[in-house]
Design a binder for these strands. Structure first.
Lengths: 126, 126
DNA sequence: ACTTCTATCCTACAAGTGTAGTCTGTAATC
DNA sequence: GATTACAGACTACACTTGTAGGATAGAAGT
């Protein structure tokens, strides 16, 4: 059971993202997927998997000869949590400040701008 | 000298934000400012200040009887760094994915939407 | 001058993190 | 059947972080 005060660490996020893409997966599959991004020892990845199980972010199916792991938390919720704490830290919780600063600072292509405008419009009319 | 691999921790951000607001400040002033947000022991705040000095994020003027502290890193740069690593972790580095998801998920008021649209327009025309 | 306060410096200490290694047992290989 | 190789459990270990406490020294009050 996930504890409320437990967070997914930076390294653990990589494993979670693999499992959110596809699950259930054996540890070998997870190692394979993670290895395309990160040059970690398989042992390291196993450690991360175990920690995530202990923290309650992923579950294990022990029926199979090779255990299969799957996420226990929703990707969207996790992203929202993470985003909120980031915005709290950097922007004192002001979403607006964040978005504004972001649009100002970052290089965004014209197409992207147009798509964002579409999104804003849709939101506005709803 | 700030090391490249050194990060400002969550708690340290609060101190940095105080100093970005106003600097130089004595530690007593920093404690005062931080205390309005956080219920930390002054000792804790002193610890954070020392760590920030050691990490090279803030500097000290020891000429005065009471040391004065001031930021050594730019607020904007720090925010950009922090934002980039957040987006890397959660959105695999895709700014676009992040903004899109964000506009979709979060409750933003109409005025805010309009201001964001203005920002997008300004950006688009530049 | 002696006491008191308190800023600065140094130390503490448990939990979390990145990054693995060891041990044990089962599975596949020769 | 003996050997090897990998899975999973447990252990390791230094560093960071949150959260302070103690010692020391100079300033300030009496």
């Amino acid at each position: 059971m996930k504890k409320a005060d437990c967070k997914i660490s930076d390294a653990e996020w990589i494993v979670m993202k693999v499992l959110w893409e596809e699950a259930p997966l054996t540890s070998a599959k997870i190692v394979e997927a993670v290895s395309s991004n990160k040059n970690w020892s398989p042992k390291t990845i196993h450690s991360l998997i175990s920690r995530l199980v202990k923290k309650g972010f992923i579950g294990v199916n022990k029926e199979k000869p090779l255990y299969e792991y799957y996420p226990l938390v929703d990707k969207r919720d996790s992203i929202l949590d993470e985003t909120r704490s980031f915005i709290q830290k950097v922007y004192d919780g002001s979403i607006h400040l964040m978005l504004a600063n972001f649009i100002k600072e970052e290089k965004i292509s014209e197409e992207e701008i147009e798509e964002l405008e579409r999104l804003l419009n849709k939101k506005n009319n709803k």
